[in-house]
Design a protein around this nucleic acid. Structure first.
Lengths: 344, 344
DNA sequence: TTGTACGCGTTATCAG
DNA sequence: CTGATAACGCGTACAA
């Protein structure tokens, strides 16, 4: 015989449930469910009664129960190298803001540029059965790929379009961006160009920019690019470090492409301090178009990407997939823009 | 009679469940549960067998089901004004990194400095039955307070300790920080001081700093502080805007306290451009000690807070509460530090 | 150490 | 338009 005692031998957590609301309003639990999920099949009158009951009892739906019963989670995971980068933070913010009206929460994973951490994070996040996973870049371990593909979640890779996505992708061509910078630097007469960025194996996007740069340099028949690898994640002081390494290893260098604006800005400030004339003696180009890039003297030549547009687009692609939109795009290439200012 | 057909008239989602693993391994579902949750009451031999089954079937536990059954969610919510601020981003990152080893996910809410948005976010987040909620500041609407208190979640308020927390708090005294800046500026001979920050009603932490500044100014018997209110969220260009407003409304101003370093940095760059000598003609003080603060010329005098330590501490306080640690602290005041550099 | 029975709070399904 | 019933996948409690 089934237990019909609501309060007796139950494990009740003591919180207000749909059943409580239903009793109070004199309807069935199912009707409460319909009201909560905004189903149209409810009379205005009953709806009002139920809403009053909800207010009176301060009922708060239980998302875990809804998830379990409906097999759908209202959660999206965003996995980025680090939230310390303003670019990634801006992307994430945009994803959150786009998804919030849909009552979809965003869970963040920081990989610290480590593939092992990415694996661990993906594995653990999948337990939440997210509606989608937004990754950074197109380079992931075989395990991450298979984990994601077998789970069947929607996957969106961001920040890069030079390659084949697991599922969907939105970003820009880092290779082309690097090539553009190369053309600019060569065009303005640079003879010896250096690139400062993270380890090639860890940041494949920066690596693509480097390769694009190399292509332009080769076309201009200039000597090979000096590549300075710094440990990720990089910060402003790495800009000074990078500058030092370049000037030590190749004193004749007359142009540096930094893989992030923070470093480029720090390098400009350091050059100003040391009396190195930018861009006359040393041209400097950054990446990201941070806020201060336009304000510093000399102002920083850089590449503008659109982290927030990327985040919003990624979120919308996810929504389209969830809503089973027919002609939804599967790969979106955003434009980047070479912003020429005073430093190069 | 109960339905015993596992695959027939079930709503089966087609995914691998504990029961599948149990059958495969020839044990009961409960034993699988024990293995997954690392219970010690399992023979090494059975454990291995179960683990093989898990591998073979690629079983991924369902967090929603676990949450529902155990009435506990492994989720913590962090609500901040905006992820665009590097300080908040750093705090959040720290929370995530501290909680990740415990398999607790972090959900972020952006209020954009709006109390209504905060209400909506809290309301909707509570459906996930988070283990804790981390808020920014001590000022919240009555609805947010009651919502939180009635739900019984652990609440941690950050970034401010000048007031009474709902539950727990970790931060520093913005008032004292402002006072310290005031003492410094007065001490170095400023006669007319200005403060540039967000609307007093929206950013009560900046408001506290302003009040602290005023106290020091009053003690020094100087004329009242000019307060320039900018629209939140503020960015670097607001630094120039603030500078302009100050010089227009009170041209005799010889010291400005900006409520964030980004603005202060932009103001210094602008002064350099205009030939305004910092600090001789105009002393400038920031808040936050951003990376570039030490690198700019003149280097920026500012207040160093510790967003990452704050995030980590908040997370640890939450863990302590969850683990029912007896003597757990309920209010932690971190030190801030006035970093005197070249600009003031 | 392992297994059995049942409930967690909601939605899907179908009958009325 | 509303209600009854049976899952959803797992942990708790207790028995063996």
């Amino acid at each position: 015989m089934k237990t019909k005692n609501p309060q007796k031998e139950s494990r009740s957590t003591g919180t207000v449930t749909m059943l409580d609301v239903a009793e109070y309003a004199g309807v069935s639990a199912q009707t409460v469910s319909r009201v909560v999920s905004n189903s149209s099949l409810v009379t205005d009158k009953t709806r009002r009664r139920v809403e009053e009951a909800i207010q009176a009892l301060r009922y708060i739906p239980n998302e875990a129960a809804r998830s379990l019963a409906s097999a759908s989670s209202r959660v999206v995971a965003v996995i980025i190298p680090t939230l310390s980068s303003t670019a990634f933070a801006a992307e994430v913010k945009s994803v959150i803001d786009t998804l919030e009206p849909h009552k979809i929460s965003v869970i963040i994973g920081n990989t610290e540029y480590s593939q092992e951490r990415e694996e661990a994070i993906v594995q653990s996040l999948l337990e939440r059965r997210p509606m989608g996973v937004i990754l950074t870049g197109l380079q992931h371990s075989a395990k991450v790929r298979s984990l994601l593909q077998e789970s069947g979640v929607a996957v969106i890779e961001t920040w890069d379009t030079d390659g084949e996505p697991i599922d969907m992708a939105v970003g820009f061509s880092n290779f082309t961006a690097g090539y553009d910078v190369g053309k600019l630097l060569c065009g303005r007469g640079a003879k010896q160009i250096a690139f400062v960025g993270g380890a090639s194996t860890q940041d494949s996007r920066a690596q693509s920019r480097y390769l694009g740069l190399c292509k332009a340099v080769k076309e201009a028949k200039l000597p090979a690019v000096l590549r300075v690898e710094l440990q990720l994640p990089m910060n402003a002081s790495d800009g000074v470090r990078g500058l030092d390494e370049v000037l030590r290893d190749a004193p004749m260098t007359d142009a540096i492409f930094f893989s992030a604006d923070t470093m480029a800005l720090a390098a400009i400030l350091e050059c100003n301090r040391r009396g190195i004339k930018v861009p006359e003696q040393l041209a400097i180009c950054g990446f990201g178009d941070y806020e201060l890039a336009a304000m510093i003297t000399p102002s920083l030549t850089t590449v503008r990407t659109k982290p927030d547009e990327m985040g919003a687009t990624a979120a919308q692609m996810l929504l389209a997939r969830i809503n089973e939109v027919e002609d939804a795009a599967t790969k979106i290439v955003l434009t980047h823009q070479l912003v020429r200012r005073g430093s190069a």
